[in-house]
Every structure is written in structure tokens, then in C-alpha cells.
Design a protein around this nucleic acid. Structure first.
Lengths: 96, 96
DNA sequence: TAATTTGGTTTATATTATAAACTTGTTTAC
DNA sequence: GTAAACAAGTTTATAATATAAACCAAATTA
């Protein structure tokens, strides 16, 4: 009845990051930080987790002289996100 | 852009409980346990939290000779649930 | 009447999210 | 030119959370 929710996505900040990446091809650290309102530390940690899970890829480069970390959703990430959305709907529609 | 999600509802088990109660007037402990697949301990704790938050009320009585704990969603709980669903939608629809 | 089941609660543990502190390098102001 | 402030993160510590394990009391069954 209630499907298990992917714990990697059932997290406010990680979900926000995935939501952004789902609609945008790629986004850098600063952009994600501004959009989510998260602290750098928190964002850094959650990006790591999404990367380890294979849900996103991270590319480190420079924009001018400044370091710039760019994130991109993977196919696996897209699948997981879609599955999560589907699963969650079971919880949001009351049984009535 | 991304509204804060009520942490009391952003929990797999509590959300499942609220989802059930949203559609059913009232439900007892055993029923909730069966429907959610949760352990008794976990369910007990989460019911406490929802009660403390004023999202549900708990009535302890007997069904025959057996103790029976009945849960019911409050108006505040309903509001919180609706607000949570609304907020969550911001996360589920990709920005694209 | 001894063992098992029902219906839970309490307590302990392991995970998680989050913030605080720190690092490296770059601008800007003096 | 150098000191102060800022950008872009990372690492580490802490606080909160979810979950399960252990426990308890009463009722039922063997």
C-alpha cells in the first residue's frame, strides 16, 4: 500500500537539488546554493551523497579564475526521481 | 522558491499514518500497524509525536477486553497535511 | 497453569541533517 | 605591495531523527 520512499531523495535539500537539476541540464554550486537557500556545508555534503548514489555527476572546473563546481543529473538520477514522485503520490492522495 | 517542509510530516511513517487518517475518520493502532507495515515501537513513537503536535488525537479504550488505541486526525492536522502536500508539489514539478 | 499472543511502551542505537569551523585562493582597499 | 574582505567549497562536530530491540501487562489458548 505504502511503497518505500528512497531515503536518498526523501530529504528536503537533496530533493530540492534534484528538482532543480531535473529541469535545467546543469547547474553550478553557487546557483544551487542561492536557489535552495542552503548553507555551503550542507549543500556540499548532500551533493556528495547524490554523487555517491550515482544520481548526479559533478565536474570541477573554473569560471575565469574562480573554482566552479557544476552538477548534472544522470539517467539513473532521473529514474530515481521519477520513481520517488510516483511513490510519494501514494502518500499524498488520501485513501478516501 | 522551495518552501520549508513541515518536518513532522516529512517522515515516511508519520506521513503514511496521516495519509490513512486523512481518509478514514478514525483508525486504531493495530489497523495502522498492519497498513503501514511498521513495528509497534516505531508506530507508538510516531503517534506520540503527531499527538504532541496536535495533528491527531488518541483515545485509549477497550475493544471487548483488549486495549484499543484509536487515532483521529484533528482540524489542525488536516490543515498541516494539506499545506504539506501543497508545499511538496513545488519540489516534485521540475522547474522546466 | 504454562506457553503464546495481543497491544502496546520504553529505551538504546544507528543514521541523518545541519551548522560551525576551517582551507585555499581571489579581489579590493589602502 | 600587503592587509582585509570575499568566494567557493570541504571537513568535522553536534543535534535531531528514525528505527529497532527489549520489555511489560493482560488476555487467550493448549
Amino acid at each position: 500500500m505504502f511503497p518505500k520512499l528512497d531515503p536518498l531523495l526523501h530529504s528536503e535539500l537533496r530533493l530540492a537539488v534534484m528538482s532543480i537539476l531535473a529541469g535545467v541540464d546543469e547547474a553550478d554550486f553557487s546557483y544551487l546554493k542561492k536557489q535552495t537557500g542552503a548553507t555551503s556545508g550542507n549543500l556540499s555534503v548532500q551533493i556528495d551523497k547524490l554523487t555517491s548514489a550515482g544520481y548526479i555527476t559533478v565536474e570541477k572546473g573554473f569560471k575565469g579564475k574562480m573554482p566552479c563546481t557544476t552538477c548534472k543529473m544522470t539517467a539513473a538520477g532521473r529514474e530515481a526521481f521519477d520513481a520517488y514522485v510516483t511513490a510519494l503520490k501514494e502518500y499524498l492522495t488520501t485513501g478516501a
